[in-house]
Computed example of a mutant assay.
Amino acid sequence: MAEKLSKALDKKVLFNPVTPEAYRNFGFPGADDLGNMFQFKRDFNDEFNNARNETFAKELNPELQNFDMWLSTNASKIPIE
């Protein structure tokens, strides 16, 4: 994502990986829950992805976009300082 954003925005975007353990210590409401979600995604990525069906999702919403499609439409709307 960072690489695609960098290209679309013509500005270097860095990926800063944060562990679920660190995320839980951010101290805002919901940080524990988000940390748990990120840990599940990290530890059970195959199960997480297998529970999702892209074809069925597109049947439910034919306008569903992948990140490349969304970026081509919305990159110009992202404010750059």
Rank of each mutant, 00 (worst) to 15 (best):
M1D: 13
D46V: 12
F48P: 03
G27T: 00
E47T: 07
P17K: 07
Q39W: 00
T55W: 02
V18E: 08
E59M: 10
E47F: 03
N45Q: 12
E3W: 04
L60R: 13
S6W: 03
F28N: 06
K7N: 10
N45K: 10
T19I: 04
G27Y: 01
L9R: 01
N61A: 05
Y23I: 09
R24Y: 00
E47I: 05
L14Q: 10
E63A: 07
F26S: 12
P62Q: 04
T55N: 11
L5Q: 00
M37N: 07
S76T: 12
D33A: 10
K4R: 15
T55Y: 06
G35R: 01
M69P: 01
D46G: 09
R52H: 14
M69Y: 06
L71N: 00
F28W: 05
P79F: 04
F44C: 15
T19Q: 05
Q65F: 04
F40I: 15
W70A: 11
N49V: 09
T19P: 02
A2F: 06
K41V: 13
D43C: 11
N45H: 15
K12D: 07
L60Q: 15
N66M: 08
A8R: 00
E47H: 06
K58Y: 05
N36P: 01
N25H: 06
L34K: 11
D32Q: 08
K4Q: 14
F38K: 07
S76Y: 03
L5I: 06
I80R: 04
L5S: 01
F67V: 15
N45S: 10
F38I: 06
F56P: 01
K11D: 09
K41C: 14
T19G: 14
F67H: 12
G35E: 05
F38R: 06
K41I: 11
A2H: 02
Q65L: 10
N16M: 14
A31P: 02
Y23M: 02
S6D: 06
N49K: 12
F67S: 12
A2D: 05
P17T: 10
D32S: 01
F44E: 14
N36T: 05
D43P: 06
L34Y: 05
D46W: 03
K11N: 15
M1Q: 13
S76K: 14
N74C: 01
E81M: 12
F67D: 12
D32F: 04
A75K: 01
A31L: 00
T73K: 14
L14M: 06
P79C: 10
A22I: 11
S6A: 13
N66A: 13
L34D: 02
T73Y: 07
